[in-house]
């Protein structure tokens, strides 16, 4: 985890708002902790059917699968790639079952 870069780490990403001078809403007074927690919550919203969960472990972000397998992640794209490896099923934001459940959330 690189504390100098994006909220999830790695280099500045197009999604990053904090720690990225070109980020959207960079000057809006967001804190790194609040943005990080918001992103974790939203990733877990997308993961609700996968039985995987993104959790904070100290300064690290870890993806934990249903069998207890874990993987440290450092960017959003890395999260989705890790989900393919540790989750019960891959994430597909166009899956109609997921869309039905999101509508009920």
């Amino acid at each position: 985890m690189c504390g100098a870069c994006g909220v999830l780490g790695g280099g500045p990403d197009w999604v990053d708002r904090v720690g990225n001078p070109d980020g959207v809403g960079h000057a809006a007074g967001l804190t790194r902790g609040a943005e990080r927690q918001r992103r974790i919550n939203l990733v877990n919203l997308m993961l609700r059917d996968s039985r995987a969960q993104l959790i904070e472990m100290g300064t690290m972000l870890v993806l934990r699968g249903p069998t207890g397998r874990t993987e440290v992640v450092d960017s959003l794209m890395h999260v989705w790639a890790a989900v393919d490896r540790v989750a019960a099923r891959p994430i597909d934001p166009l899956d109609t079952g997921l869309l039905d459940r999101l509508a009920q959330a």
Binding site: W14, V15, R17, E35, R38, R39, L42, V43, L45, M46, L76, M77, V79, W80, P93
Partner: peptide, 8 residues
């Protein structure tokens, strides 16, 4: 943030 999570 939500848009970024969805698009990625």
């Amino acid at each position: 943030t939500a848009f970024g999570v969805w698009l990625t």
